[in-house]
Design a protein around this nucleic acid. Sequence first.
DNA 1: ATGTTTTTTGTGTACGTACACAAAAGTAAC
DNA 2: GTTACTTTTGTGTACGTACACAAAAAACAT
Lengths: 355, 355
Amino acid sequence: MARQVKIKDIAQMAGVSAGTVDRILHNRGNVSEASRTAVERVLAETGYRYNIHTSAVSLRKEYRIAIAIPTAVKGEYWDSVQSGIEHALDEYSDIRISREYAYYNQFDIYSCRASFESIAEGSPNAVIIGPTFVSETRSLCGELDRKGIPYAFVDSAIEGLNPALSFSCDQKACGRTVARLLHLTCPENSDFAILSSMRTGNGRSNNSLARKEGFTEYFMETCPGNAVMEAKFSVPDPEESERNVLNFIRENPSVKGIAVMNSRGYIIADILKRTGMEGISIVCFDLTSNNVRCIRNGSISAVVCQRPELQGFHAVRGLLRYLLYNQEDERKTHSMPVDIVMAENLPYYKEFLPE
Amino acid sequence: MARQVKIKDIAQMAGVSAGTVDRILHNRGNVSEASRTAVERVLAETGYRYNIHTSAVSLRKEYRIAIAIPTAVKGEYWDSVQSGIEHALDEYSDIRISREYAYYNQFDIYSCRASFESIAEGSPNAVIIGPTFVSETRSLCGELDRKGIPYAFVDSAIEGLNPALSFSCDQKACGRTVARLLHLTCPENSDFAILSSMRTGNGRSNNSLARKEGFTEYFMETCPGNAVMEAKFSVPDPEESERNVLNFIRENPSVKGIAVMNSRGYIIADILKRTGMEGISIVCFDLTSNNVRCIRNGSISAVVCQRPELQGFHAVRGLLRYLLYNQEDERKTHSMPVDIVMAENLPYYKEFLPE
DNA sequence: ATGTTTTTTGTGTACGTACACAAAAGTAAC
DNA sequence: GTTACTTTTGTGTACGTACACAAAAAACAT
């Protein structure tokens, strides 16, 4: 194994001192043009890379990462994201990092504004954002750009902004995958429906929209004869919700497959289970604890997930690499895999291996 | 963020010197019973953890990892394992590690013996083993145990041995998943078949067997009315193989779903495609480049995978942690997730995010 | 030319651990 | 009590980087 090239080696080769090389590596300025070019040439030639360990060791600074995401309810989507974040902080616990969560209610734009403002005020070293509300996110990111604070998106990305890192899924492909699964789990000539939860307001409408698009596209291409309907149900009011759903099914007996474009599939599943309705397949998103339960009892056929935990993990990891090593040349936009989970592979589903 | 507890702190608290603490941490011996208990108490109280970075920095030793796996043919299963290994070596390139591959032909027991012997002779610091041949693996591991060299299994584990780490998949669950997918992708009253490639000999028979078990179990439970047949085809001789397959299909027109319990599904898929046979669904294992091609052109319905790349990655990572930090208290046996890949989610399938 | 300010460069120390080596304490034999 | 030897303990240095600070060089004003 070839001995590692050190800063001192670089310095010697370029005919300057280690301090100068250090200043160039960290863009600390106060370097003559001559030194800069000489050193940069040597850096390129040798393919110099930081020694992560020694770098971390001598780092005096403590980094503060702020996290603005929807409230992480135990067992639900954002809880997974958060546990990925925590996992990363644990993995990198030898670097001094502190974190501060600024949760917001994903159905309340005012709480989002409050959360984002507190973030901007705190002047952290980096920010992880779950960008539910578009214009609020834009304004926060503008502020961060001005202050030179790097930020990462998880769950979805917003156009026209410049995150250091962003994680998302091709939502159309997710929609197509849901469609495929529903198609597979339903009898030949059934019709299909998308049931949307009503309270979402602005929340995640981005994702849902693209998902619907992919979903309907699939059926248009694959079996244009079968209808794809749409209906709504109410999340806040369970009784109304039940009435909505049962009415819809009674009125559309040809519908044998129901897609829910978020994690609320279990609500429909529970209603059908409770009222003893059978022969209707449900496919939805995210491996929340409720959905796990429904896959186990057979009331949900399959679930499509987008590795929320891994997203959280890599958001932290990426931001740290950015902060510590200026590694912004990496691929910025990461498209997450689309995982399919059903009863058979559920017991072994893990996004990655923990300690 | 609380300041980290250092070895010096521990030493002071226990009323000994840093050297003594170090000896205890690394089981270097020459420590009095009194010191040992005192230090161990303080270690437990403070929950001391190594600082990975400084530890890595001051490590003088160069570690040699030997890897005994079947030949990694580009685009096939073991190539993925290897790329995970390489990925880990890159990720941890700031620790001095050298690697040495000792490939063997997974259909030739003699080449396996040769490979394993060369491993034992080299006296590496750790070994990664793809345990295809059972008794050969046993004898290698016995040797390694005697020498005190830790080893990790990837792809499958062998009973009665004591690896520092092992990665595998519940093969029965994989078989059930294949069954489920085949069931879903076939018309209502079709029969099913398992086609086995003939040359395998001893190779991976372990895995295949458990997979078959899970597969037949599923159909027994779910639809005992539909038959599950078995047939063989020859890998080395394509023409014979084609005759085998076509004959089987002609003789059993009720079979609309074919499972292949290894990665050779593409062979069947190509035959059916070439001869213009349609309406038969194929499900097999592993996302090899041939299988990717067949999923894309629609001749394979779905594939089940067990994250070979992640297995390779974590084998290296785990062995390093074992070597560097004596972290053998971790969970040793890791059951990998069972991934389902079909045309819709194929483009985004990644086991984890590379740099 | 001289002093003053600014820019550029070089040097030294800290980070926390691993390990070699020296020192001290303990043991045994005479 | 001395010597020889073993066991136990303590000390010092290296690892490669980050950063503070001192030193030198350059630029500018008088």
